[in-house]
Amino acid sequence: MEQLFEAFGIDGKLLLAQLINFGVLFVALTWLLYKPVMKTLDERRAKIAQGVEDAEAASQKLAVADENAAQVVQGAETEAEGIVASARELAGSEKSRIMKEAEARAAQVAADAEARAEETAAQALRDSEKEVARLAILAAEKVLRKS
């Protein structure tokens, strides 16, 4: 065993020095490297989780808002339809009223015109009857004078 240690240069002092070396390195790296890096990783992970949560909440809110908007739009549409229908109805009744009025006036105009035409015709007949009577008298006078 002694010979073996001698051959490989195993020395209690060196062995102890190497143990301490590794111990120092272990402690130093743990405090200087692993802990800060792990802390950063954990913090980032928490931040990302928070971000995902926020995004989920936001999308939920968005869905609710979308629904609200759709409801509002639908309400507006029904209302507009109602307005249009009532306007159309109103317009329809107005139209028929105007038509009736126009028809009535046209009928009156036609009746007036007919009456006036009849009057004129009667007048003309009376006039022509008078003329015929005068002409007949004239003719009779002429005949009488010749004879």
Binding site: L25, A28, L29, L32, P36, E43, K47
Partner: peptide
């Protein structure tokens, strides 16, 4: 060991949230 600890010291001052 000196190199590793030196690197750790250098690296620690550079750690940022956005790597």
């Amino acid at each position: 060991i000196a190199l590793l600890i030196g690197f750790a010291l250098f690296f620690r001052s550079k750690i940022a949230m956005i790597p």
